[in-house]
Simulated scan of single mutants.
Amino acid sequence: MAKMQRPEDAPSAFQAAWNAHDMAALADLFDEGATFVNRFGHYVQGIDEIVALHAPIHETIYRDSTLENELIDVAHIADGAVVIHFWSRLSAGAAHPAGPHAVDTLILAVLTRQNEIWRIRALENVTLTNPRTGEPILRG
């Protein structure tokens, strides 16, 4: 997997690791002390916990899933530190108990630069839902 040379590379790098169902590539995107909050509000810290959160679902319900990510913005907050936002569409396949369907989320991530490589320090994923009904919303 290619290293993130620019913060703008994060959405495509995350997408590529997910779509390959490659946990080593996923791990390589994160800083050792990174935090991750999934779309259900489950908080984990550290690469091992991030991989442990994702490996079982990539072996089962999301084994045939794909992501399509789209960068929204990059905000430089300090030298070697940025906040990015990107849209993410998860397309679950037949392996999911609910069958094929799509879920859109908005991802906020903090990235830091170490030795010219950008890594994710914190990532939070929020499912787009109607606040009155809780029903999922697909954008455009």
Rank of each mutant, 00 (worst) to 15 (best):
T127V: 14
T60L: 06
V51K: 02
L108W: 03
I137G: 04
R89N: 09
A102C: 12
F40S: 14
R63M: 08
H42C: 03
D9R: 06
L26M: 14
V74G: 05
L138V: 12
E59S: 13
V83E: 08
H96Y: 07
T127G: 13
L138E: 02
L26Q: 09
N19L: 01
Y43H: 15
I107G: 03
F40L: 15
H21Y: 05
Q5F: 10
V110L: 13
N38R: 05
A109S: 11
H96K: 00
A78L: 06
P97V: 00
G80A: 00
H21T: 01
A13Q: 07
H76R: 14
R39K: 12
N19Y: 06
I57S: 07
R139V: 11
L123A: 05
A25E: 09
E49H: 09
L108G: 10
I72L: 15
N130I: 00
A98W: 13
V74F: 03
L138G: 05
R6D: 14
D22C: 04
V51M: 06
G33W: 11
W118S: 01
L90K: 02
S12M: 14
R119E: 11
L108D: 09
T112H: 09
L111A: 05
N69W: 01
A109L: 09
A81D: 00
Q5M: 15
V44Y: 05
E124W: 02
L90Q: 06
L128P: 06
H76T: 15
D73T: 13
N69K: 00
V51I: 11
T105G: 13
R113V: 08
M23L: 14
D31H: 14
G33V: 06
V110S: 04
T60C: 00
E116C: 07
I50F: 06
E8C: 04
A94C: 07
D79M: 05
L71F: 00
Y62P: 01
H54G: 00
Q5I: 12
Q45R: 13
T60G: 11
A52P: 02
A55C: 02
G134M: 01
G134D: 00
Y43D: 07
L29E: 01
G46P: 01
Y62E: 11
L138D: 00
L111I: 08
I137F: 09
I117M: 09
V51R: 00
L71H: 05
E59T: 08
V83F: 11
G80Y: 03
I117R: 14
I107F: 01
Y43E: 08
G80V: 03
